[in-house]
Amino acid sequence: MTRRLTFNIFRYNPQDPESVPHTDNFVLEEAERMTLYIALTKIREEQDHSLTFDFCCRAGICGACAMVINGRPGLACKTLTKDLPDEITLMPLPVFKLVGDLSVDTGTWFSAMNEKVESWVHTNKKMDPTVQEERMNNALAEEIYELERCVECGCCVAACGTANMRQDFLGAVALNRIARFIMDPRDERTEKEYFEVVGTDEGIFGCMGLLACEDVCPKQLPLQDQLGILRRQMGWTAVKQLFHIAK
């Protein structure tokens, strides 16, 4: 028996002064191995050409297709309709600026975030292209890679109660990013410098431990563990600053 799926999709075009936020309903026959990407494309092709949503890689790699699926932020291209009930409600991610319908601008937010946490290796070493790269311990490289897997989809930010209430909160993605550089021996930033970036209420001390980020991250990044480690590290740095022994 093929199911008939009902999609309740948020519609609004902020560029059009006539447009008012509302929900449109579409009915679609479920197909085998149907993802939300396939369903949305079908709806756009067959029912409403004006439906706006983002996709790029269709394989859970680029992070473009994040949206709120029956209340939970997730990647539409990775979500199979067979895992969802007959009625599927799709909303754009909160926190980010709405482009239209299900499409939001995560780019501006993420580039500001990357600038704020200075998301690059800080080093004074001159690169010499003629010599071989320095080697990194393999276990460590893998640990760093584990945190590198973030696709900047924004699900963790959209799911975070703190980020929803407070515009200035950095969010789990930024805290995870900093944790990645703290691990990296090539980054010469001192603990004080890291503290300046995330040892604040916009950073790790604003996090209230709701762990929605951990529960929604479509790449299963170890956000809970990294947030815990970071809070301790920054907590100790603050204590060390009291005694003027922080590096």
Partner: peptide, 11 residues
């Protein structure tokens, strides 16, 4: 909350 926030309890 204390346990998860301060990393006493892991994933």
């Amino acid at each position: 909350r204390i346990a998860v926030k301060w990393g006493f309890i892991k994933r």
